[in-house]
Design a protein around this nucleic acid. Sequence first.
DNA 1: CTAACTGCAAACGTTTTGCAACTTT
DNA 2: AAAGTTGCAAAACGTTTGCAGTTAG
Lengths: 141, 141
Amino acid sequence: MLRHTAAHSNDEIRAWLRGQGVNPTSQRLDIARVFFSRCIHLSAEDIFRLVNTEDQRVSKATVYNTLSLFVEKGLIRQVVADPNKIFYDSNTAAHHHFFDVDTGELADIDSADLKVSGLPALPDGKALEGVDVVVRVRRGR
Amino acid sequence: MLRHTAAHSNDEIRAWLRGQGVNPTSQRLDIARVFFSRCIHLSAEDIFRLVNTEDQRVSKATVYNTLSLFVEKGLIRQVVADPNKIFYDSNTAAHHHFFDVDTGELADIDSADLKVSGLPALPDGKALEGVDVVVRVRRGR
DNA sequence: CTAACTGCAAACGTTTTGCAACTTT
DNA sequence: AAAGTTGCAAAACGTTTGCAGTTAG
């Protein structure tokens, strides 16, 4: 996983995508760059907007295609917390999330700060894909 | 919370709805009945279908209105696990869920079988709404 | 009579799809 | 030329909304 900073050069990101088995087209590079230079919880719509701030460069179809590809290749992961839309998280290390039901905002919970213990036996013939904890919060004392 | 069995009479459910501050119209009674006589993880679409098996009785708008009302009154709760749709769960006791990413099926995890410890400090000015654990599983050994 | 409730159809927002055009090798 | 990729527009899907009509106290 790349560190999250504005300091990655295009060449660096390009090389990283290649290493992950992703052909680094200019659109994929644009999308990868937004993930590794700012806030790491982004919806498809967020990315579409961020990638097209200056000029129109990436279509919506390509944003969705690319996000699916990145998820498949393990570069990012989906966060299912908001009933209305999927978030994508470029932090693939084990961690959990606060979800603010009033604002729709996500925030990280370090995996050191919250432990899940006593994982029960999985249903027969099933393999573990992941354990997601969402701590829902609302405005109030 | 009512037990989940087919044995509840209409009068019983009607009385229970009244006790929860819900005016028991015939549509709400129909919807409440499907929740307490079978599988407890249902999507809005599931309920629409179940309630209209014999004859057309409840519109989609009313299904959604009623589900929102039931959630607001605490009779049922939403489960956000499937990226495509919301599930409604008539089991309002603390518990968690398996989610099968291949089939889209939900299954309960008893709260005795999985513990969350070390809940971190909430963001400033926020109150806890709930802690949801989703154990994602897929087909495979 | 009034307030609460319902149903229809249209609208909405997110995501997916079909397909033709464009790259890249 | 073949394979991979992109963009557009349309479609699909779950959900919400506006509003007119109905029902119940």
